[in-house]
Nucleic acid binder design. Structure first.
Lengths: 204, 204
DNA sequence: AAGAATACAAACCGGTCGGTCGGTTTGCAA
DNA sequence: TTGCAAACCGACCGACCGGTTTGTATTCTT
């Protein structure tokens, strides 16, 4: 049975998760101060450590419950389109809008954690790898499907292209994050778009 | 006049720089412990703070005196070749060998710092952007030159391609770093190579 | 040879970190 | 109504951080 108390506790847990995700996004996991985050939330340390055993477990939960679902859903949605190339291009445009909105200097939350934590903590590494693998599988499947339907050139290597697309996007986000210039993102992504369109079956 | 003492001091300074570069490469700037690094070096804190005013200044010096020169030199060397496409491909192979050697899980020192520090410290951001700009300029110039010599298709946008190449490489390194799998780097880079070769003037 | 300056050593400082723990409130079950 | 456990609070802890200070050996200058 779900009581009123359980609901309130769940709300607290999710408030903590949300705030932690934001704090980690802003300054990175290692530099994210729990005290700072709690102060902003108006929640005590006791509450935090009631819901999470350690900072590490909180970090894992942020990935599992907040970042990974969002990230995976975005790609799955984009690739559900008829033409995966167009789907990916739409995703790239969405990403540009997201960055341009405000968070240009913060980059991609997943990629940030990957670069910071994967050499230091196996738990983070594995969780992030799971996300990348789902991205890759989704792209690869979509490309292979389109290829079977005759939309893509037969010599296209879906596996290879999938890795290349993901890497290029992550790289472009990283480049733009550093320069704080969305134009660089756009230029870089333009290159990717042209590449993708060249994979299509030429009109006969 | 350069005295014997100056020489010894310079050696100490460079030992500190080298060790700091290594420590930062391993765990990131913010988590790099000066004590840890000094312990490994067998050098005291007094020595460190005699040569550098703060951790920040040490970090800047690592970038200016160690990382940036190396990074820029590698690209300049690769692009001095007759055919820039081939030059870039050779650079990509070198990068693969570097990663495969041992430091796969550590990624690219410049990119690591960029992702970690650019939102937090303007000094780091500007220094790294200078590196990226030199990379971009080198690639763009090389491509434009090759284009003039008739090696590249005339519709190629050298500016755009330069950004795309840099982003893709950085992204591939980041992806491989997380998965700790050099095969993923190779796949991703293969996509980039094919793209680059398609920029060449078709044999008539 | 004497003294000033340099290069380094090491003890030490305040501050912040993640984490703990005893106490208090709150809501549900009996 | 009451007993009790879950939810939460916040003072507190030791560890470690970057940075300072003080001391000393060596080396250059005069």
């Amino acid at each position: 049975m779900v009581t009123q108390r359980d609901l309130k506790a769940e709300v607290t847990r999710e408030k903590i998760l949300e705030a932690a995700a934001e704090e980690i996004y802003r300054v990175g996991y290692q530099s994210a101060s729990l005290c700072e985050m709690l102060k902003r939330l108006g929640i005590s340390k006791g509450a935090l450590y009631h819901h999470f055993a350690s900072k590490q477990e909180l970090g894992y939960a942020v990935l599992d419950d907040v970042l990974a679902p969002r990230a995976v859903a975005a790609w799955d949605a984009a690739l559900s389109a008829e033409d995966p190339i167009e789907g990916i291009c739409r995703l790239l445009d969405e990403e540009e809008q997201f960055l341009a909105g405000q968070r240009l200097a913060c980059g991609c939350p997943i990629n940030n954690l990957a670069q910071e934590m994967s050499p230091l903590d196996e738990g983070f590494r594995q969780r992030i790898e799971r996300v990348y693998r789902r991205w890759h599988r989704a792209v690869q499947n979509a490309l292979a499907g389109a290829q079977q339907r005759g939309l893509l050139r037969p010599e296209v290597d879906a596996n290879e292209v999938a890795y290349f697309v993901i890497a290029s996007l992550q790289g472009a986000v990283g480049l733009a994050k550093n320069s704080q210039d969305c134009g660089i993102f756009r230029s870089s992504i333009n290159g990717l778009k042209k590449y993708l369109h060249d994979l299509k079956m030429p009109a006969t």
